[in-house]
Amino acid sequence: MSQKEVYVYARWQVKEGELPTVLNMMKEVAEQSSREDGNLFYKLHQSQSDRNTLILFEGYKNSEAVEIHRNSEYFKKLVLEQIVPLLESREVLLMDKIV
């Protein structure tokens, strides 16, 4: 596994009427994620022009930390099982820092 930091950028388009539910669940996701050993930061942003567009920006110590995050029970239960069905679309990019 790579030992360099990994940054995750996710763009979520929340289905109409589901935003309060998603935001409520994201409080726990952000809290749990921030407690992970390999997590550097976990930030959730909301578009000013379309309130149903959420941007997640996450930092991890390395690719192993990303895998630990994605395989955690809370991630599977909250994000994959409960939040993803409430999204119109979901795009996730893994990135390396250049400068």
Rank of each mutant, 00 (worst) to 15 (best):
M1W: 08
S2K: 14
S2Q: 12
Q3N: 11
Q3I: 04
K4E: 09
E5C: 00
V6Q: 11
V6K: 11
V6G: 00
V6R: 08
Y7H: 06
Y9Q: 11
Y9E: 04
R11P: 09
Q13I: 12
Q13C: 05
Q13V: 12
Q13E: 14
Q13A: 05
Q13F: 07
K15P: 07
E16S: 15
E16R: 15
E18D: 04
E18S: 07
P20V: 08
P20F: 03
T21S: 12
M26Y: 13
K27D: 10
V29L: 09
V29G: 08
A30M: 10
Q32L: 09
Q32F: 09
R35C: 00
R35G: 00
E36T: 01
E36Q: 04
D37N: 12
D37E: 15
F41P: 09
Y42H: 04
Y42C: 01
K43F: 00
L44N: 00
L44V: 08
Q46A: 02
S47Y: 01
Q48V: 08
R51D: 10
L54E: 03
L56Y: 01
L56V: 10
L56P: 10
F57M: 13
E58R: 02
G59I: 09
K61C: 01
K61G: 00
N62R: 13
N62H: 12
S63C: 06
S63T: 11
S63G: 11
E64H: 15
A65V: 12
A65H: 11
V66H: 06
V66A: 08
E67K: 15
I68P: 06
I68R: 10
I68E: 09
R70D: 15
S72K: 04
E73R: 15
E73G: 05
Y74E: 03
Y74W: 09
Y74L: 03
F75T: 03
F75E: 05
K76D: 06
K77L: 13
V79K: 07
L80E: 13
E81W: 02
E81R: 06
E81S: 05
Q82E: 13
I83M: 12
V84L: 12
V84D: 02
V84T: 09
V84Y: 08
P85C: 01
R90M: 06
E91G: 08
E91Q: 13
E91I: 13
V92H: 04
L94A: 05
M95L: 13
D96C: 01
K97N: 06
K97M: 05
K97T: 02
I98L: 09
